[in-house]
Design a protein around this nucleic acid. Structure first.
Lengths: 151, 151
DNA sequence: GCTTGACCTCAATCTAGGTTGAGGTTGCAG
DNA sequence: CTGCAACCTCAACCTAGATTGAGGTCAAGC
């Protein structure tokens, strides 16, 4: 890790907690655009640390790469997220979290109503039919919960 | 669809809402074990409808194939789930849903505390560090909200 | 006994988010 | 100028949960 402003991919990995391969992957997906040395090696600016940290946090909040890319693209002219941008983005993430919590809660409540009913195969079972709606595609913390927090 | 007790895979698909390929897939994964006709075609019993319905519901609740397989294996001697079994299983699913809701809520609360703080790249940021725990691998409703039911 | 639709197997493909490996360069220190 | 770690690209592989397609068989009706 150098003292000046140019950092290598390994330095970025050390600083952000991401793997080198993940950082290259994000570049391939267009989330970051480091400059290159004459020899072709990636040179990162300090601002890229914030950008990568943002990617990491947003992912942990359940946004997909595409979602994150969209958020980053909303920033005027390739800026790095500032505190203000972050506030705006996080409010939108919050709304999505709220939705997900509500959806999960609804499923749980339906499950409560169903415990012991034995209706498992009936077409009119609330859970059975609810599933069609409960499981739709889109962005969301697919990996956020659900996962074993202890390992 | 025949009136008697033997059903073909297409009948099962029609009755459970699963696709034919999904049913074959579940068999390959050991979740069901239909008998075969002399010619090699799958013959399903009525009980398999319940079993498949159970698989479908459990999946919509966020269990992985492996989780479901484990639940089904807990049933004594290859029985099909009864109302009682379902009550036991659904209580355990409920506990897992509760955990997930709690985890999500915690993340949302952390996010609230962080909105506007601009700490994005700081090592001490609660969200930044929380992520290590919030997003690890394991079973859970990865697809619960999140998928397109319309296709 | 032939046609036809439903069935069969097996392998390849898909999305997401990367990791791993092969084979080859860069660039800094000595 | 050499050694060597860290870098580079590109392709293949991984998990989950299936779907799709190719090529072939079964069984029921006429």
């Amino acid at each position: 890790m150098r003292a000046d402003d140019v950092m290598l991919i390994g330095d970025m990995a050390a600083r952000t907690g991401l793997s080198v391969s993940a950082i290259r992957f994000y570049e391939a997906r267009g989330l970051i655009a480091p400059v290159r040395s004459p020899g072709g090696q990636r040179r990162f600016r300090r601002a890229d640390i914030r950008r990568l940290s943002f990617i990491r946090i947003a992912q942990q909040l359940g946004l997909t790469i595409e979602d994150i890319s969209a958020e980053l693209n909303k920033l005027p002219s390739g800026r790095t997220p500032t505190a203000g941008d972050w506030a705006r983005i996080s409010r939108s993430i919050r709304a999505s979290l709220d939705e997900q919590i509500a959806a999960l809660t609804q499923v749980r409540n339906r499950l409560d109503g169903c415990i012991g009913c034995g209706c498992l195969s009936l077409k009119k079972c609330a859970l059975y039919n609810a599933g069609d709606r409960a499981a739709s595609t889109g962005a969301g913390p697919r990996y956020l919960m659900g996962e074993n927090p202890d390992r």
